[in-house]
């Protein structure tokens, strides 16, 4: 076992097995648990996945949404136990691994095409095809 595999094996049981296959460009709902004192509530952050970074337990995703015409981004550790639920609302068609150009876009051009329309053309995997995100 290589060192890298050994380190990954330590965190293997913390990886969520049932995450839907998430790609850059998808619109997602992230249900994030917020603990305030002994109270706990869940906040839903809906937005477009701009980027995925890191691998294994270290994977982070950047989600961008527009609040009151102000762009808001939040980075989530994908495998954090604080994420109680994770849904994919819409699959977007992206040809980039990082969609930072969306930050400069306004109005309609901010939207991404639906993945479905581009299927076959770009050779992306079908929606819901895989059970875990590619690490």
């Amino acid at each position: 076992m290589s060192t890298q595999q050994l380190i990954e094996s330590l965190t293997a049981d913390q990886l969520k097995k049932t995450l839907p296959a998430m790609h850059v460009g998808d619109t997602v709902n992230v249900h994030f648990r917020i603990v305030e004192g002994d109270k706990e509530r869940t906040q839903v952050f809906q937005g477009v996945v701009l980027a995925k970074k890191g691998r294994g337990i270290n994977q982070m995703m950047t989600v961008r949404k527009i609040v009151d015409e102000v762009g808001t981004e939040r980075q989530f550790p994908v495998y954090s136990p604080m994420i109680s639920k994770f849904e994919i609302i819409r699959r977007g068609d992206s040809r980039r691994a990082k969609l930072y150009y969306l930050r400069d876009r306004t109005g309609k051009s901010r939207r991404l095409r639906d993945r479905r329309r581009a299927l076959g053309k770009v050779g992306v995997t079908k929606a819901g095809g895989k059970s875990a995100p590619s690490a």
């Binding site: 990954e8 330590l10 965190t11 913390q14 294994g56 337990i57 495998y79 136990p81 604080m82």
Partner: peptide, 8 residues
Amino acid sequence: TRVYTDAG
């Protein structure tokens, strides 16, 4: 690497 506690 990183480890998450039970409290998250």
